[in-house]
Amino acid sequence: MSARLPRKRFYRARAHSNPLSDSHFPVPICPSDVDFASHYPPQFSAPVVRFADVGCGFGGLLVALSPLFPDTLIIGMELRDKVTEYVKDRIHGLRATNPGHYTNISVVRTNSMKYIPNYFHKAQLSKMFFLFPDPHFKEKNHRRRVISLHLLDEYAYVMQLGAIIYTVTDVEELGDWMKSCLENHPLFEAVGEDDISTDPVVKLLISATEEGQKVARNGGQTFMAIYRRVPSKED
């Protein structure tokens, strides 16, 4: 019964993973080296991924986005091996139980802080998600945060003009950090309140993710920063 959905308790994993350690999993040399065709069924010939959920965790957002954007290819990126396996099995299970659906989502195990440019061409992505990332409270560990001024350079590189970056956290300190990184980056501009309120994706940031549901259950606060990729203001 491979069609059955996987159960989380068989995929127990650590809550954290060190993004600084040398990777021992295979890493594609360049974007054309990534075999995206094996991730999506053949109806997507020469697949081009447009959305990336960085640190997708157990894949709640992927599953929620899939029916909303049936023609858009979405990839989840996760560093923890077992969690990636869970998401893979979850997607396979969903595809088997709902034929024709959930064909546009998939997951790769990778360290996105090191290898984003190995997966995507320049200006390929139209949405990037960073939901409930590891807060790394200690100052000496701030360089392990997935949003930083320098890493935003790389995210800006793979995002097309007008593409949206979504960040959300339940940790106020991290929320402030992510907001200030995006605010101080010349290639990003805050998305206006009007656009946020009409964006169907925004609601999913909290309701669709396991972490978001946990926060909602506990009546916690969330801190969002949603920014748009803009051209360089130089010249």
Binding site: I29, C30, N118, A156, Y157, L187, S232
Partner: peptide, 14 residues
Amino acid sequence: KGAHEIQSFCLGHT
């Protein structure tokens, strides 16, 4: 003010 605009990545070395 920082050099934030990446022109390209040259990827191919193994």
